[in-house]
């Protein structure tokens, strides 16, 4: 009997793992307030050229992929853009600029021309006069799939150093697709989130 109850409990639990969104917020002891993720939307009606620009250096929040071109060290801010450092003295990398590129995870540089992935394609940027940049081209390619769930540790290089999470649930704000496509996720304090996904 106990075994049956246990199996029943396990199978009920398993069924929760199969779905990532729950409509009822009181379903499984949803905390009043919990750390989780909220979606970053991209309004596809915007012009990509107006969204790619350089700003003064900003603190690195999440260190994504790295890239080296001549004396420059590039540190990705996953989903948001690239931090540029003058690394002529590796003992003292000096922040030069932040290049804002929505939905960017990867870059490559040839002859001071940067290629960066972004939503729906590749953006081509002249960085020869960094911190000033010039957006040369946007090459539209295949559409990215918009995700309805946040990245898990290790995915899309967003790395929080967490060893395989055993607590079971990652809460997130449910996606409202009327706001655009989801191009990334950021940490947030959520109030009674209705969505979560299970990690194990």
């Amino acid at each position: 009997m106990i075994l049956k109850l246990f199996l029943f409990f396990i199978s009920v639990s398993m069924s929760f793992f199969l779905v990532s969104c729950r409509d009822k917020d009181n379903y499984m002891n949803v905390p009043e307030e919990v750390q989780g993720y909220k979606p970053v939307y991209f309004d596809t009606s915007q012009n990509i050229f107006s969204l790619v620009y350089s700003t003064a250096p900003m603190p690195v929040q999440v260190a994504g992929k790295i890239y080296i071109f001549k004396n420059f060290l590039f540190v990705g801010e996953p989903g948001k853009g690239v931090h540029v450092f003058d690394n002529i003295d590796p003992a003292n990398p000096v922040p030069v600029a932040f290049i804002n590129i929505p939905y960017n995870f990867d870059i490559a540089v040839k002859d001071s021309i940067m290629y960066a992935d972004t939503y729906m394609g590749l953006v081509v940027i002249n960085i020869s006069a960094i911190p000033d940049i010039q957006v040369l081209q946007f090459i539209k390619s295949l559409s990215n799939s918009s995700t309805g769930t946040p990245p898990l540790p290790g995915e899309n290089t967003i790395f929080n150093g967490t060893r395989r999470i055993s607590s079971g649930k990652i809460y997130f704000e449910c996606v409202d697709f009327s706001k655009g496509v989801v191009v990334g996720w950021e940490s947030a304090t959520l109030r009674k989130p209705k969505c979560y996904q299970s990690t194990n």
Binding site: K65, I66, Y67, I68, F69, K70, F74, F105, D106, I107, A108, V109, K110, D111, Y115, D117, T157
Partner: peptide, 18 residues
């Protein structure tokens, strides 16, 4: 004239191709 990426990259150059 091309840079260097880490092993997790989704971009690579070879000759005149990206």
């Amino acid at each position: 004239n091309t840079g260097s990426a880490g092993s997790m990259s989704k971009f690579t150059f070879n000759g005149n191709y990206l």
